[in-house]
Design a protein around this nucleic acid. Sequence first.
DNA 1: AAGATGGTTCAGAATTTTCTGAACATTCCG
DNA 2: CGGAATGTTCAGAAAATTCTGAACCATCTT
Lengths: 191, 191
Amino acid sequence: MSGAAESHAPVPESAAAGGGGAWEREVVDFYIHLAQAFSLPKSVGAIFGILFASPRALALDDIVERLSISKGSASSGLKLLQRVGAVQPTYEPGDRRTRYVPEMSIRRLLTGLLQETVTPHLRRGAAQLESLAPLLNEFPPDERKILAARLRALNTWQGKAKRLLPFVLGFLGRPLRRAKIDPGGGDESGA
Amino acid sequence: MSGAAESHAPVPESAAAGGGGAWEREVVDFYIHLAQAFSLPKSVGAIFGILFASPRALALDDIVERLSISKGSASSGLKLLQRVGAVQPTYEPGDRRTRYVPEMSIRRLLTGLLQETVTPHLRRGAAQLESLAPLLNEFPPDERKILAARLRALNTWQGKAKRLLPFVLGFLGRPLRRAKIDPGGGDESGA
DNA sequence: AAGATGGTTCAGAATTTTCTGAACATTCCG
DNA sequence: CGGAATGTTCAGAAAATTCTGAACCATCTT
């Protein structure tokens, strides 16, 4: 593999020098914005983007170079992406460096991300909810009634949230045919 | 006085002085954590929490006082919550202050939040995607093949994401019966 | 109209998050 | 073993976000 599109040199990379630059820039830009939608660091989006934009797996050094970020950033960014399953390391015989490829299954992508971000909070919340009910006893009946209703709502949320995740994953797993489910309000979607 | 559980005085509030404090604290704490799960400012979670914890609608001053935050914070926090539809203003005749009540429908809550956070990014992304395809022409055939496949995947994601939102809302709208969807595996699937 | 009341805005302070760069491990190679 | 190649860690720098407090606007009361 020495062949391949190395970019150790400080000059333009690979076959697609002129146009390739634009492609990389645009893809990276796209993922930087996407990352921010999830409030992840820009560098994380950029790293995923550069992997996505490259037809071959890249190693840490390649990333550092192409994005002009520090080794530290690249290292921890890759670690995060690995943890949520957004990139996978590939080990090729005869190459000491770990190279990474982007995960292409949106399902696995989302699974990992949610597992990492919301699930723990969900769990924590569930625990805390239990300790809440007894505190209502201090309130006079009329107020207690209102608050008890809210507490019930909170439990409902919790329940729905718990079920929502598998549901969503089920949806993402299916082939993209027309989904024949017609959600209630059918919001404007298009908009 | 207009009765109600005012708390203009610097002393314990309302009927539930001793216990009420604990209730408020716990609820606020709960929502602060929830807010962080969505990476919203703590103050925003706290504001929603204090509204949720109170059997009566609260005005800006009440919030400032009970949470010991600045008027500025409270004002902009409330504005954000209003924008995403998480709280609603109530105007009572003979009272100049706007009071706020928390939204209790998880569906409306999520709708607003998503509308505010992900939808715009989704839109932006869709636009950008179009401009991406032509850039592939610069690549040699073998690389182009790989990248074209990725671009297709990206379009699929986009499509799924678009459909996902209404789908989720449909789910949230339904009563909490047993959902008979059985998503693939347990969930951690494969790692 | 003067003064109180309710609320918004915004410049700078405080805090939190992210990034850098260099020191430190570890493994491979000769 | 000595040195080079890969990577990780972490203290402090840099950047971004959030909060405060005071000035300001608008409306109501007298």
